[in-house]
């Protein structure tokens, strides 16, 4: 410090600068403290509202961790992996239900993607100048994706009866909303020149969309639809909780009735399936992205 070439200002000026620095630092500290106090107060209020009980949690936390010990223990007391036949006793049934779960996700995604695809054109600002039509389409998509799919499933179960059909329809509605919004954003970012070109040569609106817009957005659309399929496989696995088909029903029963080994068996099957689907769709998506960059 003594060898520093920087020359300090004269003492009165130095004191003023020092005071200003302290004031600024104090102001910032006070703001941080204010935020912290507000957050803590909100947290305490929320804790009171939900009836949070740290003592209960501390008492029961070992139960939570030992849960993972228990689900890998067979009824006989042996470790689950010492007897895979006993562990996966219901494999045939579970695989069938898992297949149903995948089909629910697939059919829901496919039909929902088709619906979202068409609605996305109606809600894109560069294709539709009628504000009412566009606004209606946008609001409809917003409604479809803001209401959680499991709420739709609850209502559809009452209307269509228990089974996979309401599950598919619930995923369908939610997919229309989610994909429709993503795609209309892609369309709004599409290159304007082909659109202007086709309009200039007198193409009708459907022809313009088909030959100017669709080729631009198709790889993106497929990629988003595959991502949505991954999400829907996860969602489909819990639709059974409300009676809308798939493996969720068996999983919920196993958890509620404390069939410990079944819980781990079904969860492992589910996690494995989800990982396989993710890997598969990721490969396809990379392939599609490659195709897009080549085009």
């Amino acid at each position: 410090m003594l060898t520093s070439p920087v020359r300090l200002p004269a003492p009165p000026r130095l004191d003023a600068l020092d005071r200003e620095y302290r004031d600024a630092a104090r102001l910032k500290r006070r703001a941080t403290m204010g935020v912290a106090v507000a957050v803590i107060a909100l947290a305490l209020f929320s804790g009171w509202l939900v009836g949070a009980d740290p003592a209960l949690l501390a008492r029961r936390l070992p139960v939570f961790f030992s849960y993972f010990d228990r689900i890998f223990t067979l009824d006989g007391g042996a470790r689950a992996w010492t007897d895979p036949r006993e562990w996966f006793w219901g494999l045939r049934r579970w695989l069938r239900l898992l297949g149903d779960t995948l089909l629910i996700a697939y059919v829901g995604t496919f039909l929902g993607a088709a619906g979202g695809f068409f609605l996305s054109f109606a809600s894109a600002a560069n294709l539709v100048s009628n504000r009412w039509l566009r606004g209606t389409a946008k609001r409809f998509l917003e409604f479809c994706r803001t209401v959680p799919d499991i709420v739709f499933a609850l209502i559809f179960v009452v209307a269509f009866g228990l089974g996979p059909v309401p599950g598919v329809l619930a995923l369908l509605v939610h997919t229309v909303g989610a994909l429709g919004k993503q795609m209309s954003e892609v369309i709004e970012n599409a290159d304007r020149k082909p659109i202007e070109g086709l309009t200039a040569v007198g193409a009708s609106w459907p022809a313009m969309v088909r030959f100017a817009v669709v080729p631009q957005i198709l790889p993106n659309f497929a990629s988003y639809a595959l991502l949505r399929l991954e999400i829907n496989v996860r969602e489909a696995s819990v639709l059974g909780f409300v009676g809308a088909g798939g493996i969720g029903q068996d999983l919920m029963e196993a958890i509620r009735k404390f069939y410990y080994a079944d819980v781990s068996a079904i969860l492992l099957l589910l996690i494995g399936t989800v990982m396989l689907i993710d890997l598969g769709t990721e490969r396809v998506r990379h392939h599609l992205m490659g195709a897009e960059s080549r085009a």
Binding site: D53, L56, L57, R60, L61, V63, F64, Y67, I150, R234, E235, S237, V238, F241, L251, M252, I255, R256, F258, L267
Partner: peptide, 13 residues
């Protein structure tokens, strides 16, 4: 899934 975790925690607390 969140719902599965919720079921497990219901069993605990």
């Amino acid at each position: 899934n969140t719902l599965i975790w919720a079921l497990i925690w219901i069993g605990v607390v």
